[in-house]
Nucleic acid binder design. Structure first.
Lengths: 199, 199
DNA sequence: GAAGCTACAGAACGAACGTTCTGCTGTCAA
DNA sequence: TTGACAGCAGAACGTTCGTTCTGTAGCTTC
């Protein structure tokens, strides 16, 4: 009957420490370890806090009742381009939907390979030297796809185009020539995304 | 004294099933759950298999002796640009070093935000519309950095440059003008990387 | 054809697990 | 100044954990 059924408070420091632990070990620790992590000496209180994080969506349970990260556990601040007026130091939208960059980039882990880009033959497509190309490994591709092909025992990233009935590999850089492979064109996979680190 | 001290065999199917489970729950299950997962009804055998995966580097232990993913657990095929001759269908190098794209891109999770790129004002820097910018949130930056600034209540991604004593924001696209903010320039963070999905 | 090995099954066991209950302390509103 | 409540501590308890030991079926090897 309480009018203001205020939600129990959950300590953001606890969550951060858990996330740091998870970031290091990729596993949710046991209650006793959690107690040490949080500076608490009572498992009963850990149990209480876990319940709150569970209700808030940060923690969850496997079908076998093992504690696991919840839907919101991995959320990062996904900032939207349009900022509401007057937000002081972090114009963060409340809409969290993204889980992991990994999950976002690779859909079929078993068929996905990572290729480090060498050279600047694809700069006009926004693909730079040193970028990590997310490639779905498959032996065929469609015209217009950016493909990773094997030419002269080396990987090449190029556009797959068709020219007078034959497949050609077109760079996205005027300084490079179109590659017209003689014989069969061996395709390693199709580009599905990329990751770049600039720091 | 055995000449060929052959390594115990480890079932790749077991590893795959574990990776699938982990991919779904983000947690290593208990031995009894593992037994069910692997179609084994003896925990003793699970223990044996775990030991093998541990020796192979796929599993590891926390300081509190909890089972956790090992260094090789997350490895993806990282293909190198230079291909050795005559590899049939996957020119995959043996050097696995990468863990997760997430780990590779974000170093300080608590200070990292994700910004979706709008517009094409930075195409010449290889930043396209729709890309996910990995931003380290901090109120200051160095000249030459690609920064996310707040201008007119909107996020803008630009180069931070200095011009006649004042900070300016330079786009990487000739079609856009240099932004010369009047008053204080509010910086949201510095670009640390990006992720793009093209499929 | 006996010995040895691998791949499991099954049971026993102590340690660790998470839950629950009681109790204490500080704070705040009535 | 007295409840009421939130934040913890501490102990009890039944369950589940991972380890270890014994046993067995199938295969290979000499």
């Amino acid at each position: 009957m309480a009018l203001n059924a205020q939600k129990p408070q959950l300590d953001p420091q606890y969550l951060e420490k858990l996330q740091d632990y998870y970031s290091e070990h990729k596993v949710i620790p046991s209650y006793s370890v959690l107690a040490g992590l949080w500076g608490i000496s009572a498992k009963s209180w850990v149990s209480e806090c876990v319940k709150r994080f569970e209700e808030a969506g940060y923690l969850d349970w496997t079908p076998d009742r093992q504690l696991k990260p919840g839907a919101r556990f991995f959320e990062r601040k996904l900032a939207d381009s349009t900022v509401q007026a007057g937000l002081p130091n972090g114009a963060i939208s409340d809409g969290y939907d993204l889980i992991t960059i990994d999950d976002w980039l690779v859909k079929i882990p078993s068929k996905t390979a990572l290729v480090r880009v060498k050279g600047d033959s694809m700069v006009d497509a926004g693909i730079h030297e040193g970028d990590l190309l997310v490639v779905e490994v498959q032996p065929n591709a469609n015209v217009g796809d950016i493909v990773v092909a094997i030419v002269d025992n080396e990987f090449t990233v190029k556009y797959l185009e068709r020219e007078r009935g034959a497949f050609v590999l077109k760079p996205a850089n005027k300084a490079y020539p179109v590659i017209r492979p003689r014989g069969r064109l061996e395709i390693f996979g199709v580009m599905a995304g990329l990751a770049r680190r600039t720091r």
